[in-house]
């Protein structure tokens, strides 16, 4: 399949866009997808960039994320939206992308700065530091409207979060 925008390169990114209730499928090459993402971020406004950080990633992978169920308790994200309650602690990593922006909306932040359980396994320690650093840098890049840098940092954050997620 060819890219919908440049019609030259092979489409590797599949995007579902909903504008005014109209669903459009976009098939893009890597390069055009990056362009598009910056465009979308500008559309959503600066404040939403951080919150929408993960949402964009979700849209890109929409094809394999049709159903969003917690593998541990079986609650779906739709259930959560209906009842306002999550099913178990594993819902958090399962709905990570959605919850990340939701937490930010509710609390004005999605980064815990309080205490930790005493016996909580600490290997995440140094990594949290870098993740925190990355997020701080991202915020700065957004404020300076340096979108290239922001996109780069966003990828790094996503990678770091994935690593953390895969840890036992």
């Amino acid at each position: 399949m060819q890219c919908n925008i440049c019609t030259k390169k092979k489409a590797t990114v599949h995007l579902t866009e909903i504008i005014d209730g109209q669903v459009t499928e976009l098939h893009l090459c890597e390069e055009c997808a990056r362009e598009k993402s910056v465009q979308m971020e500008q559309q959503f406004g600066l404040a939403d960039l951080l919150a929408g950080l993960a949402d964009f990633g979700k849209q890109v992978k929409d094809v394999d994320k049709v159903k969003l169920d917690c593998p541990h308790c079986g609650v779906s994200y739709d259930d959560f939206k209906k009842f306002g309650r999550l099913g178990c602690s594993e819902c958090y990593p399962a709905f990570r992308d959605h919850l990340s922006s939701l937490l930010k909306k509710i609390h004005g932040s999605n980064l815990h700065l309080g205490k930790a359980p005493l016996e909580f396994p600490k290997p995440v320690g140094p990594q949290i530091e870098t993740l925190r650093d990355l997020k701080a840098q991202l915020q700065e890049a957004v404020q300076k409207e340096d979108f290239e840098k922001a996109a780069e940092l966003r990828d790094k954050i996503r990678l770091a979060e994935k690593k953390e997620e895969n840890q036992p």
Partner: peptide
């Protein structure tokens, strides 16, 4: 917390049934 395995994530703190309490959950 030494005796019970609390639901906790480094980034988001204490995990609660409703996200309005997540974090410090305080």
């Amino acid at each position: 917390s030494k005796k019970l395995q609390y639901a906790y994530m480094g980034n988001w703190g204490y995990l609660t049934a409703c996200p309005t309490n997540t974090g410090t959950a305080m």
